[in-house]
Amino acid sequence: MSWAVLSMIILGFALLSFFWRFEKRDVSPKEIALISTMASMAAISRVLFAAIMNVQPTTFVVMITGYVFGPHTGFVVGAIAALVSNFFLGQGPWTPWQMFSWGMCGVSAGLLAGIQKGFKPGRFTVLAGLWGYVFGWIMNIWHWTAFVYPLNWKTFVATYAASFPFDTLHAAGNVVFALIFGQSFYYTLSRFRKKISVKYIDDLS
């Protein structure tokens, strides 16, 4: 079987497994509304900055959502932001890969929030910068497996080297957005999370 087809199948299963978990979770209307709002906001930020290649606040918006609301919400926001923004920018073979990559940005930020208290701009910014490269590396898999032969270290390094300048731009953009908007977005979203968190008390006596 072609490596490109195999990689698409694995990716499809990975996406399906995350969405399946989302379907099985007990999700309130508030959460649904919040996820669609943040996905739309991430998608818009991609369109607004479309002129500057690879410098888009989408990664940052997805990550900060994942950081505040957890890895599951982060994944769904990232995946849906990629899908929805491509309704307006154009779908391509890259869509499922972007869905997965942005989804994983949200997951990693959610996991980072799990191991530290509050918002630590330094660590968050480093992670955002790293995702500039990791995002490109995930996207390159399809390009390498579908259009390059033989699949060896030489062609692998060459393919990844070709994307290096674009990945660096993405990483730099993420770092700048995280530094400028990180703190304020974190406070706004955290306040909102408290607003939508409802605890039902059964017995008041």
């Binding site: 989302f22 849906i80 929805v84």
Partner: peptide
Amino acid sequence: RSILTAIMAA
């Protein structure tokens, strides 16, 4: 849920 979320986002 996933589709409702995507439709609302769009």
